[in-house]
Nucleic acid binder design. Sequence first.
DNA 1: ATAGGGTTAG
Length: 679
Amino acid sequence: MLFYAFKTLSPASSPKPSSLLFSDLMLPVLSPMPSSHLHLLSPSSPKPLFRSFSSLRTPSQTPTSVNNYNHLIQMLCKRGNLKQALDLLPHEPSPTQRTYEALILACVQRNSPGSAAVVHRHLSDDGFDQDPFISTKLVGMYSHFNALDDARNVFDKTSQKTIFLWNALLRALAVGDEGEEALLLFRDMVLVGIELDSCSYSFALKACVALRSCEVSAFERVREIHGHALRHGFNSRVHVATTLVDCYAKLGCVSYARRLFDRMLARNVVSWSAMIACYAKSNNPFDALKLFEEMMVLEPDIVPNSVTMVSVLQACAGLAALGQGKIVHAYVLRRRLDSILSVVNALITMYVKCGTLVSARRVFDGMNGRRDVVSWNSMISGYGIHGFGTEAIQLYQEMLHDGIAPSTLTFLSILGACSHVKFVQQGKTLFESMIKEHGITPRAEHYACMVDLLGRAGQLDEAIKIIEEMRIEPGPTVWGSLLGACRIHGHVELAERACSHLFELEPMNAGNYVLLADIYAGAKMWEEMINVKKLVETRGLQKVPGCSWIEVNRKMYSFVSVDFMDTHTEELHALLVQIVREMKGKGYIPNTDVVLYDLDQDEKEQILLGHSEKLAVAFGLINCRRGEVIRITKNLRLCEDCHSVTKFISKFARREIIVRDVNRFHHFRDGFCSCSDYW
DNA sequence: ATAGGGTTAG
């Protein structure tokens, strides 16, 4: 029985797969980013200081009018010269509301809590602590410093509480991750009979997402506030409706979010971006691109901005749609959005995940002087997942040399990089330095990296030691890493131990059961294997079907394994049969161990032949131009048999084949893989 | 006067 299917990722109704092109984006494919396009990234020259400041400061030159001082302080604040403005404050007999507003704003912009205290003291002395306008500004300021107690204090002490003041505190609590507190405040607002506005609803909804600790209750609260908004006619306001879409999306209700989005009476660029981001984040990159295309077609007046493009690039990265990504890159350059750091960072990740490390590096190199920690992390992880451990470590050191402080994600990237190339000692040293030199407390994910590094390298005892000495609860990531290592080394007992936790922590994750069954099969423990399979059945779990896809001429073709053949597939099948026949002549033995069904040898070989990755490779051989790299993406880990077949093909068809699996990239060339068969 | 969407790991 041969498993096979052919489908395109484009709408089923069209006879030919349509490309994801937008007339507006129809540009020649651009691969290198000319550095001249990055000139906008250089910092702008500083503005001159206020010229007459020093002369005005001396007491002998007292200004004739009070307004001069107020004006001067405000000017200095505007220029970001907070310190000089503060020095001037004691000389001013009667600062105005505007002056204090400017000072508060400057404290936020300069990120200076110390100056904030000085300003607060001054304005209290002047009696402005009862001014609801100033109080609103103060609450916003304290929110910026995450000083929620101070924010609440200001609120409590102000007797005349306007809706702005209520909203300011509500916002402060919501963005300060105090969802519970924010919702209590919202309840107070309703009970006291405050007339809510759309901002109140937006903030309260944001607070629900901040709850997250208990998603069920978060969902209930969103529904409550949604209902309230509905009864008071606020649900159709574009801000509220957009927030609702975003809330449901963040709580995992993607199709419901879409339904609300479709029902919106008016949408703006933020509404569209929120929905596109929802798809990009929830592993629906194709839907994200489709929606982006729709936005161009249906709403010619809405112009995508940098936030939109970050999500679109994320979707290209998720799909590994290089051709599409290049078009988006060209669009970004045309719209000058490459002056926005987050967009450039998203470009790096897009190229990394599309398998073109060189292009990613070119973008990274073009950023000289304007890289933040995200840019570095993206490039380091890029080297890591492409199997360039040495380069990843080197770049990490360059980053330190540049004075950029590494983050928790830097270490996840660099430890992952070590793991891919079996750099056990380097990984250990880096993990130590993370704690001791950089003061970063390891999270479960870091431990998972270490367990993966040690475990896959065969040091299972050390891996266990790491878990036992952890100061925090080892979550599913840690046990999952251990289980993966057990599969490689056929360690049944440890696998059982890992699974005893995993089946408890994530009972619905079919992957864990499959791995355990795989390990039992490897140890020829058939009875145990069958029991695990039964468990999967009784719990009603669905194995994630293997799926591979390939982009040809900017169209996506995806392959999954099903149990019938049709006319599309015969050509691919025939090609694979021929390849395998040749390989067998050269000593290839199909690795039927990976097939966990009770079938005879021939049937098992047939199933191997139908693995989605082989079909995608065959499709690539037929449809990609000679000399062109065949790029394939797979949703799971590569199986051993596909790995060896692809190695063979790379040599005898003289094709370079790059496969992205769920963990890393494999570059096949001349019969070898960049992973050195360690993955 | 307060407002809604986005960047890196696995």
